[in-house]
């Protein structure tokens, strides 16, 4: 464990908690893409299958349980409890256009052709693009509540911090995983325009407005 990965996990945890609190407190999931949340739940489910098979550490197990529970709780809030506030008309990204290439790529580019490894690879590639429906929805609605933009900033930062973690681990532990690194860079790059808007606008108290 190193400071970059710890900060990354904390940022990830913060993002998930911000989202849960936003929906629970405002009793509304307006502006939130249910499709992205579904993709995140799929990501954690396929990646944390080893939750019960190999124990890494208390921290590792605790975080996996929290991420799984929070992502399913968020889906329940969006599609069940506050279903009436779910903005279906703006959450229209075709996720099949994500699932197909991710599935093909995980079958072609993986470290080992075993079920558990393919599922892990699939989850790594899926996570890289899982935010696209949400970013698409923000661009369609043309704006995002500031709490939603804080959520996106924390979520985008987490994998950016993981990139620093991979640099650290490469030099200090001569460990690297090209699949995770490639997907992590793509995932972080997808947030770039949002990061720019967040830094230049939201931090100055303005609303996040995307050029429609």
């Amino acid at each position: 464990m190193n400071i970059f990965r710890l900060l990354g996990d904390v940022s990830h945890l913060l993002a998930i908690i911000i989202l849960l609190l936003k929906i629970w407190k405002t009793r509304s999931c307006a502006g939130i893409s249910g499709k992205s949340q579904l993709l995140f739940a799929l990501t954690y489910t396929t990646r944390y299958l080893d939750l019960v098979t190999n124990f890494v550490s208390v921290y590792n197990t605790f975080m996996k349980v929290v991420f799984l529970a929070a992502s399913y709780a968020t889906i329940w809030l969006i599609y069940m409890k506050f279903r009436a506030t779910y903005d279906q008309n703006h959450d229209t990204f075709r996720i099949e256009f994500l699932l197909l290439p991710v599935t093909i790529l995980s079958l072609v580019a993986n470290h080992e052709f075993t079920l558990i490894e393919i599922l892990w690879t699939w989850s790594i590639y899926l996570e890289a693009v899982a935010i696209l429906p949400q970013l698409f929805m923000v661009s369609k609605t043309g704006e995002a509540e500031s709490i939603t933009s804080h959520y996106l900033f924390a979520l985008g930062s987490y994998r950016g911090l993981y990139i620093l973690n991979w640099i650290y681990r490469y030099y200090m532990e001569s460990y690297y995983d090209l699949i995770a690194i490639f997907a992590g860079i793509l995932q972080t790059v997808l947030y770039c325009d949002f990061f720019y808007l967040y830094i230049t606008k939201v931090l100055r108290g303005q609303r996040l407005q995307l050029p429609a």
Partner: peptide
């Protein structure tokens, strides 16, 4: 690449 046995990253 020396693959970490088991996944220690989240």
């Amino acid at each position: 690449t020396n693959r970490a046995t088991g996944k220690d990253e989240l």
